[in-house]
Nucleic acid binder design. Structure first.
Lengths: 141, 141
DNA sequence: TTCACTGCAAATGCTTTGCAGCGCC
DNA sequence: GGCGCTGCAAAGCATTTGCAGTGAA
C-alpha cells in the first residue's frame, strides 16, 4: 500500500538540478546527455554523468523536457518549449540549426494519421543537410 | 577481379542470409535484431547474433529494409515494401505500421532546406499514435 | 582458389544501479 | 532530522569488431 506523498513528486532544488536547468535554458536545440555533461564540465559546473542522466530522466518524466532519439539511438533532450510545436533543420557538419514552422506538415500528419484511424498522434520531423556555409566550404575545396 | 569493385557490393547468397530474408518476409511489422535472432533460433535456423546484426545492417544499407528506432533506442527493421523513399505511421502500443507517401512533405522539406541555403538534404519523419484497434480497445476497456 | 561471410567472444559505448555520505526541506 | 539526491564505480544491454576457419562464386 503506497502512501502518496503530497503533490505526487517531491523534487529538490539542488545545485546540480539548477545547473542542468540553466544549461538547458541556454540551449536552443536538442542535446545528448553526454554532450550536456561535457558542457557542464566546460562551464565549471561539476555534475556527475550519472546524475546528469538521472536529472534529465526525471525532468522528462515531469514533462519539463522533450525527448528524442538521435540517429544512433542516443537519447537527446530539449527544454520543453513552448507554446507551440516546431521542427528543425540541422547542419550535419557544423550543427547549426534553424527552427521551422510547418503548419502544412502538421496538418498533413494529423490528417493522415486520422485517415488510418490513429489517435493520440505525435510526430517527429528532422531535416538534415549541409548549411550554406558548409556547402560553400565544400565546393571551394 | 570484379567488374565493379567500386564501393560495394558483392553479396553472397548464404544460408544465413536466406534465413534472415525468409524470416523477414514472413513478418508484417518491425522487429528488433535481438527478436529476429530469437525467432530464427525458434525456427531451428542457426544464425549467430553477430551475423544477424551484420546481415540486417547490410540489407538496410542496400535499401532492402526499413530501419526505425524503437522507443528505447533499439534498432528495428522491416522488409521494405515500397521501392522509393517513404515514411511510417507506427502504433506505439502494438507496433503496427502503415507506410506513407508524403509528396507534399517531401517537397516542403526540400524547398524549405533550399530556402535556407542547405544542400544534400535528407529528412526523417515519424508519426506515432494509437492505431484504430488499440484506440478502440482503450475506449472499451 | 579466393575472399566475403560466419561464429565466437571480447570489446565498445551509452545508460542504469548499489551503496554510503551529503544537503535540501 | 529525515530522506531524496549525489558521486563513484561497477553492472547491464544492445551493438560492434578481431580473428581464423568455412563456403560461395
Amino acid at each position: 500500500m503506497s502512501v502518496r506523498t503530497g503533490g505526487g513528486g517531491e523534487v529538490r532544488n539542488t545545485r546540480q538540478r539548477r545547473a542542468v536547468s540553466q544549461a538547458l535554458a541556454s540551449l536552443e536545440d536538442f542535446i545528448s546527455t553526454q554532450d550536456l555533461h561535457a558542457l557542464l564540465r566546460e562551464r565549471g559546473e561539476s555534475v556527475s554523468l550519472a546524475t546528469t542522466y538521472r536529472i534529465l530522466q526525471s525532468m522528462s518524466e515531469l514533462g519539463e523536457l522533450d525527448v528524442l532519439r538521435g540517429g544512433d539511438g542516443e537519447a537527446i533532450y530539449r527544454r520543453c518549449a513552448a507554446e507551440h510545436h516546431h521542427h528543425h533543420l540541422v547542419c550535419r557538419r557544423c550543427g547549426a540549426a534553424v527552427e521551422l514552422e510547418a503548419p502544412t506538415v502538421e496538418e498533413w500528419a494529423g490528417r493522415t494519421a486520422a485517415a488510418h484511424g490513429f489517435t493520440e498522434v505525435d510526430h517527429t520531423i528532422e531535416i538534415t543537410g549541409l548549411c550554406a556555409a558548409c556547402s560553400a566550404r565544400r565546393a571551394d575545396g
